[in-house]
């Protein structure tokens, strides 16, 4: 999962950049958002959006609220609910008005009733079908709620991925064999691998032109694998497009690991298990 660049929250200071990771003090917000999603199962999406907007109007960073709900959307199944194909429904009513539309409530009801009869459904259902294919008219059909802290960790992982999309260079270290991660680094760019006394070091040079979406996928897989290793760390040189400058970024397992999804969840990614 990655976030739209405009939801990336960072702090820049003395040549260093760091995402504004969500820590324990954001747990109440996480809990609140999870319960909003829970309450909106079987509701139309626009109702969920309205409830989320209410949260944004309170004293939270709206980018954080939107970032977290982007993650939560990944835990949702949205579904179009319509008895007939909305496009077919529209075609039919337009035809029945002879392309002239309707100018009164009675006229509208007559057209809907006529169309409904053709489809064999009620006029109310037909009315609901007309634009059931719009995103906001979709229903939140199922929601698999994460634990609040896990939500924050997934969010932090997404922030890290989003930041590293503009990485120029990365340096990964961990206790383990080069085979564990090297194959995940290759798709990102040119690699330089070293093994010193049980520690593997992989340097990656990332070309500036790459499709952000495919890079995000590769990055996410790599980071998930990295944080499941022992004694890991990550250094990177990151370009920051809004300022046009480059910054250093570091993430150290022993210090930052708890901010990211726990090893157990994604652990054991290696060539053998991944294939």
């Amino acid at each position: 999962m990655r976030l739209p660049q405009n939801l990336l929250r960072v702090r820049r200071r003395r040549g260093r950049i760091r995402p504004m990771y969500a820590a324990r003090d954001e747990l109440p917000l996480a809990e609140r958002l999870i319960s909003i999603y829970r309450e909106h199962v079987d509701e139309k999406r626009w109702k969920l959006w309205e409830a989320l907007e209410e949260v944004e109007l309170m004293s939270y960073d709206p980018k954080l609220v939107r970032g977290l709900s982007t993650i939560l959307d990944g835990h949702c199944i949205y579904q179009m609910r319509s008895l007939v194909d909305p496009l077919e429904a529209r075609r039919l009513v337009y035809r029945l008005t002879r392309g002239r539309g309707v100018t009164s409530e009675e006229e509208r009801r007559r057209v809907l009733e006529e169309a409904a009869e053709i489809f064999g459904i009620t006029a109310e259902d037909l009315d609901e079908s007309l634009y059931a294919d719009l995103e906001e008219e979709y229903y939140l059909a199922d929601f698999d709620p994460p634990e609040p802290m896990e939500l924050l960790r997934e969010y932090n992982l997404a922030l890290t991925t989003t930041l590293l999309i503009h990485a120029v260079e990365m340096d990964l270290r961990y206790h383990g064999h080069p085979d564990d991660l090297e194959w995940l680094c290759r798709p990102l760019g040119e690699c330089h691998v070293e093994e010193v006394g049980g520690e593997t070091r992989i340097g990656v040079r990332l070309p500036s032109r790459a499709r952000p979406s495919s890079r995000a996928d590769h990055l996410e897989r790599l980071i998930k694998a990295l944080i499941s290793m022992r004694a890991w760390s990550l250094w990177a040189v990151v370009h920051h497009p809004p300022s046009g400058r480059t910054y250093r970024f570091e993430l150290i397992g022993g210090r930052d690991g708890w901010l990211l999804p726990s090893m157990g969840l994604y652990g054991g990614v290696s060539p053998s298990t991944a294939i």
């Binding site: 496009l87 009513v93 539309g101 509208r108 007309l130 634009y131 719009l134």
Partner: peptide, 20 residues
């Protein structure tokens, strides 16, 4: 979309699929 739905008039926005 409100006008389209209330007056049963075809609508085109940036979200309308190209074929439609």
């Amino acid at each position: 979309y409100r006008i389209s739905r209330e007056m049963l008039i075809p609508a085109i926005t940036h979200r309308t699929p190209k074929a439609e």
